[in-house]
């Protein structure tokens, strides 16, 4: 596998390396990547933090009753996520609002910054999204057991189903519960990775097609628009699924 890729790269010809954009590089020098090494991951996460500071701290420093443009953007995010948390998880779940807001803003900013040319998309890495999803999974499980004790397990026992079916459904529910972090993380990472790789593949076509490269360039413009939508929607989906999972832990049983 590895040798095949290398040979292909050495051949020249139609040089498409859609995966190269996901390589983690040290920012300074060429040394090995230790856990503490500042890499392009650090850089782009840092940029996301700076943008967050700009929108949420710098723009709101006047605390204007009549908001400035950026302040109303921050208020828009606040209202959007707050309403989502309160609608889905109920009043009890509103305590988790800062946590969910952090998740949403991180994913949203990372997705959007990843769409800048030459940038690095941290959310396209399964390692990153898996940590996010595992955090949600652990939070939901711990909070559920803390608040409901063993009663939390009753969500696997579908009391509205016929008695015969209940053990079968319980097995399915348990499996789907443990599959949640997997689908939760791969949905985000996979969507982002696939979109960016497709753009890169089309860019490779454009490089090889001469005058006809107008066609892939137009296609890239279209896909780019779609990716903007995907970036926002995936952040939304990740967040709302977090809220849905949290409802199991804090809300009243809805089965």
């Amino acid at each position: 596998m590895a040798t095949g890729t290398e040979e292909h790269a050495a051949e020249g010809g139609l040089a498409i390396h859609p995966m190269d954009q996901f390589i983690v590089k040290p920012l300074f020098g060429d040394g090995p990547v230790h856990w503490y090494t500042p890499t392009n991951v650090t850089l782009w996460m840092g940029i996301a933090v700076v943008v967050l500071l700009g929108i949420f701290v710098l723009a709101t420093r006047h605390r204007g009753i009549i908001p400035s443009r950026l302040q109303s953007v921050a208020e828009l995010f606040y209202g959007f996520i707050y309403n989502m948390v309160e609608d889905v998880t109920g009043h009890e779940g509103a305590k988790f609002f800062p946590y969910i807001m952090t998740l949403f803003m991180f994913i949203f900013l990372a997705n959007m910054l990843g769409l800048l040319p030459m940038s690095f998309t941290v959310t396209s890495h399964i390692a990153v999204t898996a940590v996010l999803a595992l955090m949600v999974f652990l939070t939901v499980t711990l909070v559920g057991f803390y608040r409901k004790g063993l009663g939390f397990l009753s969500m696997f026992w579908v009391s509205s189903a016929p008695l015969v079916l209940r053990p079968v459904l319980a097995v399915i529910e348990v499996i789907s519960y443990f599959v949640r972090p997997l689908s939760h993380s791969i949905r985000l990472g996979g969507n982002l990775m696939a979109g960016h790789a497709v753009i890169k593949v089309f860019a490779g076509f454009a490089g090889a097609m001469g005058i006809a490269s107008v066609v892939p360039i137009i296609a890239i413009a279209g896909i780019y628009g779609l990716e903007l939508l995907v970036a926002a929607v995936q952040a939304y989906v990740f967040t709302i699924l977090t809220c849905v999972y949290l409802r199991d832990a804090v809300g009243e049983a809805h089965h």
């Binding site: 989502m84 609608d87 599959v179 689908s183 791969i186 949905r187 996979g190 709302i240 699924l241 849905v244």
Partner: peptide, 20 residues
């Protein structure tokens, strides 16, 4: 709208397994 997105996400999850 929220239910729509949640439903789409659940349906998509199963496709993501095959992608995985």
């Amino acid at each position: 709208m929220a239910n729509l997105f949640v439903g789409i996400a659940f349906a998509e999850a199963l496709g993501i397994f095959s992608f995985l």
